[in-house]
Computed example of a mutant assay.
Amino acid sequence: MQVEIWTDINCPFCYLGKKRFHDALDEFENAESVQVTHRSFELDPNVPEGTSGDVVENLSKKYGRTLEQAADGERQLAASAREAGLEYVTSGRDMGNSFDMHRLLHWAKELGRQETMLDALYAANFAEPEPLFGSSDRLVEVAVGAGFEEAGVREVLDDPTRYAQDVRRDEAQAQEFGVQGVPFYVFDRKYAVSGAQPVELFTQALNQAWADRPTPTLIGEGDACGPDGCEVPR
Rank of each mutant, 00 (worst) to 15 (best):
A164F: 04
G226L: 02
F148V: 06
E87G: 14
Q114S: 01
A120D: 07
K62N: 07
T217F: 03
G85K: 12
R234E: 12
F99D: 07
Q76W: 13
A124Y: 03
V153M: 08
E29F: 09
D223H: 10
H102I: 11
R82L: 08
V89C: 01
P233M: 07
D166F: 06
G50R: 12
R103H: 12
M101I: 10
A196D: 00
E68K: 07
E87F: 09
E221S: 12
E130V: 12
A70F: 13
P227K: 03
W6A: 01
E115L: 03
H22E: 12
R75G: 02
G73M: 15
A205F: 00
A164R: 14
F184P: 00
P183N: 05
F202G: 01
P45H: 04
A151E: 15
E221G: 00
F99N: 03
E49V: 14
H106L: 06
E128I: 05
Q35W: 09
Y15D: 02
R20E: 05
E128D: 14
P233L: 10
A124H: 09
I5R: 01
F126S: 05
F41M: 02
N46A: 12
V179A: 00
G152K: 09
L201K: 08
P214R: 01
I9W: 10
G96P: 11
A81T: 14
A79W: 13
T7V: 15
G152D: 11
L16I: 15
S135V: 07
T66Y: 04
V182C: 05
D170V: 01
R103M: 09
G195H: 06
L201E: 08
T203N: 04
D159I: 13
N46D: 14
D119W: 09
V199Y: 07
V36P: 07
L139K: 10
T161A: 15
S80F: 15
A146V: 07
L67T: 06
A123Q: 15
V179L: 05
G220V: 04
V142Y: 14
D212E: 15
E87Q: 13
F187H: 00
E155K: 08
D137H: 12
T217K: 11
K109D: 11
S98A: 10
M117Q: 02
G53M: 14
F41S: 00
A24Y: 06
S194V: 07
D94Q: 08
Q197V: 08
F99H: 14
V186G: 00
A196N: 01
A172K: 07
D170H: 01
E176G: 03
L86V: 08
Q208H: 10
R169K: 12
E68A: 10
N97C: 05
Q173T: 10
V89K: 14
A127V: 05
R82D: 04
E68I: 07
A123V: 14
V36A: 00
G178C: 03
V186E: 00
Q165W: 08
L132T: 14
G134F: 13
L132K: 09
P216K: 01
P45Y: 09
L132D: 13
N46I: 06
E87A: 13
D158H: 11
D137K: 15
E221P: 01
L67A: 05
Y63S: 00
R168Q: 15
S98G: 01
R213L: 09
